[in-house]
């Protein structure tokens, strides 16, 4: 262990601001990337699912119209 106390750890030998700025930015950037990637996958799946449902409805409607004739 290189630091005696929490304060010393946060201070980083006087470079605390720069070290935590870097790691803070990295953490936020990577978290955003993961969350965005996951939500994009979810959105793609739900869009495709919606389209399948619409297509099926259209097919059904077309069949019913044909039956009435």
């Amino acid at each position: 262990m290189q630091f005696d106390s929490i304060t010393a750890f946060l201070d980083m030998g006087g470079y605390g601001f720069f070290v935590w700025l870097s790691f803070g930015f990295g953490l936020i950037a990577l978290l955003t990337l993961v969350l965005q990637s996951k939500s994009a996958l979810k959105r793609a799946k739900s869009d495709i699912a919606k389209r399948i449902v619409t297509e099926q409805k259209q097919k059904l409607a077309a069949q019913q119209q044909n039956n009435h004739r």
Partner: peptide
């Protein structure tokens, strides 16, 4: 990297940015 690696003899603890900067 943040707790146990030694500080640099010239750059002190600012060197710890290295562990994010260089891999990135």
């Amino acid at each position: 990297a943040l707790l146990f690696a030694p500080a640099d003899y010239q750059q002190g603890d600012s060197f710890r940015i290295f562990y994010l900067h260089v891999p990135a």
